[in-house]
């Protein structure tokens, strides 16, 4: 790994840290801005991903859809309240595709409901395509492929 790659990895780690903090601190309105205007956000079960089945748990194709999701999680979907805590691995750079930086990062998301112990909620990896813009690095695509075979009842907030 040369110096440029190392710096890029650190830059992506910082992006991931800001992303996780926004979600764990419940600043959901900040979340769509991590993406390009036509960025894609997908949460998909590993069994579908591995078998090439297209169904996803959540599949959003624009910042607009992400804003609609934020409205859903804050205003319309009834659910038991909970906090998330993201724990992320360092990013692993993958071979770029044209201008797009590609990276993969492992994640574990813990859920804590009021009055309960924390529990392992969703475990998987981000597979990302990232673009450098005047506003900094943005996700063109973030695919969260989760190993967890069962969603623990519901999944409301972004991963």
């Amino acid at each position: 790994m040369n110096r440029d790659e190392l710096l890029l990895q650190l830059e992506i780690d910082q992006l991931n840290a800001r992303y996780a903090a926004a979600l764990d601190e419940r600043r959901f309105d900040d979340w769509p801005a991590f993406f390009l205007e036509d960025g894609r956000y997908t949460v998909q079960a590993r069994e579908n991903f591995d078998r090439g089945l297209p169904l996803a748990l959540i599949a959003l194709e624009s910042r607009g859809m992400m804003k609609d999701r934020v409205y859903g999680i804050t205003q319309t979907i009834f659910h038991g309240p909970y906090y998330t805590r993201h724990v992320l691995s360092p990013a692993q750079l993958l071979s770029p595709e044209g201008e797009r930086i590609r990276a993969q990062t492992h994640y574990a998301v813990f859920r804590t409901r009021p009055g309960d112990a924390s529990e392992v909620y969703n475990v998987g990896r981000y597979i990302d395509e990232i673009v450098r813009t005047p506003e900094g690095l943005k996700f063109a695509r973030r695919t969260c492929v989760y190993d967890s075979e069962m969603i623990l009842n519901s999944l409301i907030y972004p991963i």
Partner: peptide, 11 residues
């Protein structure tokens, strides 16, 4: 045609 699966555990 099969599009895929979602699985949840409901208490």
């Amino acid at each position: 045609t099969l599009l895929g699966y979602n699985r949840q555990r409901i208490p």
